[in-house]
Write a protein that binds this DNA or RNA. Sequence first.
DNA 1: GCGACAG
DNA 2: ATCTTGTCGC
Length: 239
Amino acid sequence: MKMAKLHSWNVTPKQAIAIQHKLRDKIKTFDDFDSIKTVGGVDVGFIKEKNLSCAALVIFSYPDMRIIDVINSSEPISFPYIPTFLAFREVPVVLSCFEKLENPPDILILDGQGYAHPRRMGLACHVGVLLDIPTIGCAKSRLVGEFNMPDEKKGSYSYLYDKGEIIGAVLRTRDNISPVFVSIGHRVSLNTAIELILDMSITRIPEPTKIADSEVKKYANKIRESKLEQESFFKNYGI
DNA sequence: GCGACAG
DNA sequence: ATCTTGTCGC
């Protein structure tokens, strides 16, 4: 798909903050999409020895949730892991997956926070705004905000608050299993985000994220194996 | 200054 | 995230 003019990814934390502040005004906190026919899930993995970040973007038909496409890509690691700057580490390789895609999914689920971020610009918002597509953030743990534990029953949730503002929801996707943290990314309301995540969850982690996670691990292992091939190749040629 | 801190 | 074996529980 076509990409808009992007900002640099080779930045200092101070520049990263400036970028987050600038992009923050572009977030659409309301539903802005037509009927959902496809949903996507992305996840990123790292191979430190090769300084590579790899990603898997899985596209599903909706609501039947059949896998209709799997796209992989890898890029050099360009940024360290620093809380609140996750996007600068993971977005580059996610975008390279989208460059290989003709049509983006109607909704994209990311493994991390969206609006539930100190500057309201978590991973899901960053990807959503840059590609201008509907996104939802679903994280396994909290970055910021206060909340009361929701009831143990699947479907129950409580709101995540920060500085007097609702920034997301703590949602139970399974009975008696630790909740997930849902927040909007772009062009989706929080209520819709909660409903969709619940609808796409069979186990604790929503299917798009779960499948993307297994796919990226498969892909990363393939790259690790090819490393052995490369080494033997050099050996065979006496390099 | 100290503690917290998505993946 | 990644490194790693067995093990407790539905």
